[in-house]
Computed example of a mutant assay.
Amino acid sequence: MDRDLLIHLPVVLAVARCGGFAPAAADLGMSPSAVSHAVRAVEDRLDTPLFARTTRSVALTEAGRAFIADIGPAFTEIGEAVERLRAARGRVTGVLRLNVPRVALQIAITPVLTELARRHPGLVVEIFSDDSLTDIVAGGFDAGVRLGGMIAQDMVALRLTPPFKAVLVAAPSYVEARGVPLTIGDLAAHNCIGFRLLTSGGLYAWELQEAGEDVAVSVGGSVRVTDPTYAKELALAGTGIAYVFEPLVRRELEEGRLHWLLPENAIEEPGLFLYYPQRTARAPKLRAFIETVRDVLGPTIPPTIVKSS
């Protein structure tokens, strides 16, 4: 084994994972010049360029992608072995990388992170807020959070929340000024806060129920957002009607700061799930997170394998 090559490989992996020299330097606590030197040293030893560099971007070459695919799992196993050894001595350390949609942060993740920090101060949790259906394995994440119907195939899934409704809400001031819609058709006369999908760029059609059937309703209004939590803020301000998950507005509904409109037309979502590859299940950092989830969020169903239909 070439020891001079080996010591620089974690830097190469960091550049690939972070997508650039500067973010990798920040992640590793190194200077960008030191990161660049390490990558250049590996490329010189291999006599192969691993990254294609321009003034604005850094991307893996074809050889670089193949090399990262070969060495990445080995370094992951080494890291997990170190973490297991430390965990056996009562210390959970390392970086737990989670891919989480923004709406799930407030509903399920924040209370877990608060307790996790108290229990395991040596563990760093890195949250990547992402509303797209990212491949968590390819993205280098330890686990992800999604609605039950959106979980990738052949993953271990752990329930975080019970099923919940997708609800229409508005502030008392809006209702007083514009009235209450009595049917789905009445929404056409209301200021509905639209939601633009970042993945496709299209406008989301609100999913509702009518006569026992699911319907997709195109709505119009003066504001469109890409963040469901901001739709809630706009509803609280009296701007219009928002379409949000019920746990996100539960307190506001209980306090009367928002009204639930057309409750009979609300659909039920399967709830939020933590999911992860089977191979990561033994990692102490993930086990510590799961144990905290169970204690903070309450009883959960046993882990199950989500198979393709």
Rank of each mutant, 00 (worst) to 15 (best):
G144L: 07
A104P: 00
A88G: 11
I107G: 06
T93Y: 03
E83N: 08
L133V: 11
H120Y: 14
A166G: 13
I127C: 00
A166S: 14
G72Q: 11
D135R: 02
R89M: 12
P121N: 11
F164P: 08
A138I: 05
V82H: 02
L147Q: 13
A87G: 03
M155C: 05
V95Y: 00
R56N: 12
P162S: 13
L160M: 13
G140F: 04
K165C: 14
R86N: 07
R89H: 07
A87L: 06
M150S: 11
R118N: 05
P101V: 15
G72F: 02
L60I: 10
L158A: 02
S129C: 10
G139T: 07
R84E: 14
G144W: 01
T110R: 12
Q153K: 09
R65E: 15
E62W: 00
Q153R: 10
D70W: 08
D154E: 15
T114N: 12
I71Q: 07
R89P: 02
P162F: 06
Q106L: 14
L116M: 09
G64E: 06
R119H: 05
R91K: 08
G149N: 11
A138H: 02
A87Y: 00
R53C: 14
E115K: 00
D130V: 15
D142E: 09
H120T: 12
M155F: 06
M150C: 09
T114W: 00
N99Q: 01
A170T: 10
A157P: 06
I136S: 07
E115I: 09
R89N: 08
A171C: 06
F128L: 15
F141V: 07
E126F: 00
